[in-house]
Amino acid sequence: MSLFNAVGDYVRESQVWGSIFRHGVPKDRRTRAMAILSNVFLHLHPVAVRKSGIRLSFTWCMGGLTFFLFLAETITGVLLMFYYRPVVEYAYADIIALRAHVTLGLLREIHRWGAHAMVIAIWLHMLRVFLTGSYKPPREFNWGVGVVLLTLTLLLSFTGYLLPWDQLAMWAITVGSNMARATPVAGHEGPGAALLQISGVPLIHAGSDARFSLLGGTLVGPNALLRFYVLHCVFIPVVVTVLIAVHFWRIRKDGGISGPL
């Protein structure tokens, strides 16, 4: 082991190592604090936390798991984008090809199961935060941010559901997006839509209502596929990323992991 230690010491004393990690080996209080403070990712954490707050039986690690699953989804999602074209003629064939030809073709599996797991994890995170009363002052606002993140997670999963362009996808999205045409006022089969008309000509009809703007058509077709792809891969993830930053920032600003006052 002495050789192992010697190599270790050599690496840790090198200029390269020292330029990346400004602190020494996290052995004592000072270097351990430095390990957190001098790392852009780790310094999302405070230096010290309440011991009872980080017990697994208290947090269930569900918020962390949700975040981790979001990262896993981002990575596998970006890789999937290499193989997938959001065009009706190619989409299904690309998924088939992904199955048949890509070595170690687990990407889509990890992406899909990760998405399901993320939905469950975020629900359980909400349940934990609720049952520990952690939404109470001073964390009211952050709870609200969390609710929005929960909604966006469901929307992420929903928009992704269409992309394989199989029967499951198409009809699940048809059932889901049919709701939009019943939106009050904004959907052509919603209450109040008939009120919006100019001298007898309705402003809200099947070609102009909420569902149309969601699908880019009156049916789940090519435009819907493209819109869901863009929402799924760009728009919602960007919003989620921003809100996650706010969420984490506010955890610290609101006093860290909750505990008895």
Partner: peptide
């Protein structure tokens, strides 16, 4: 169970390693 205001521990190693294992 959650009481004990002065039971602070350092995030490194107590929290980061829990996170890593999870």
């Amino acid at each position: 169970i959650e009481s004990g205001a002065d039971d602070k521990v350092l995030v490194w190693p107590d929290l980061v390693f829990t996170e890593l294992i999870c």
